[in-house]
Computed example of a mutant assay.
Amino acid sequence: MNGGQVGRSRTAVVQPCARCGARWAVQGKPLHWCPRCHGVLLSPAPVDAPADRRNYRWVARPPGRKASASQPVRRTGTAETPRYHQIPRWGLQDRPAAPAAETYRPLAAWTDRLEQLLVATAVVFLVAAVAELGRYGILLRNRTRLIQPWLLWISDAAVTVSAVLALALALMSAVALVGWLAETRRVAYANVGESDSRSLFTLVLGCVVPIANLIWPGIFLTEAARRTGDGDPRLLRAVRIWWAAWLLNAVLVLVALIYRFANSLQVQADGVLVAMWTDVVAAGVAVASLGLVRDFAGLDLRGRPKTLRRWVIATGPVRPVIEPVRRAPAAAIRDDAVVGADAPAVDDAAVEDRAGASADAGQQEVVAK
Rank of each mutant, 00 (worst) to 15 (best):
L257K: 12
I258R: 11
I258E: 08
F261V: 12
F261Q: 15
N263C: 04
S264M: 08
Q266F: 09
Q266P: 02
V267S: 11
V267K: 08
V267L: 14
V267R: 12
Q268T: 09
Q268V: 12
V272R: 06
V272D: 04
V272F: 06
L273I: 10
L273K: 06
V274S: 04
V274Q: 02
M276C: 12
W277E: 07
T278D: 06
D279T: 01
V281A: 04
V281Y: 03
V281P: 00
V281G: 00
A282G: 10
G284K: 01
G284R: 01
V285Y: 02
V285C: 01
A286S: 13
A286F: 01
S289N: 03
G291A: 10
G291N: 08
G291C: 11
L292M: 09
V293I: 02
R294H: 06
D295R: 02
D295T: 03
F296H: 05
A297R: 13
A297G: 08
A297M: 00
G298K: 06
D300E: 01
L301F: 13
L301P: 02
G303R: 05
P305A: 09
P305I: 05
L308K: 09
L308R: 09
L308H: 07
W311F: 09
W311H: 14
A314F: 00
T315I: 04
T315C: 06
T315W: 09
G316D: 10
G316H: 15
G316Y: 12
R319P: 04
V321D: 15
V321W: 10
V321Y: 15
I322H: 14
E323Y: 05
E323P: 02
V325I: 13
V325T: 13
R326N: 10
R326G: 02
A330L: 14
A330E: 00
A332N: 04
A332V: 09
I333L: 03
I333E: 03
R334I: 01
D335V: 07
D335G: 00
D336F: 09
D336T: 03
V338K: 09
V338H: 08
V338N: 00
V339E: 12
G340L: 08
A341G: 07
A341S: 10
A343E: 08
A343V: 06
P344S: 14
A345I: 02
V346W: 00
V346S: 05
D347M: 01
D348C: 02
D348K: 04
V351H: 03
V351R: 03
E352A: 11
D353L: 07
R354G: 06
R354N: 05
R354K: 09
A355P: 00
G356F: 07
A357C: 11
S358I: 13
S358P: 01
S358R: 14
A359D: 15
D360L: 10
D360R: 15
A361W: 08
A361D: 15
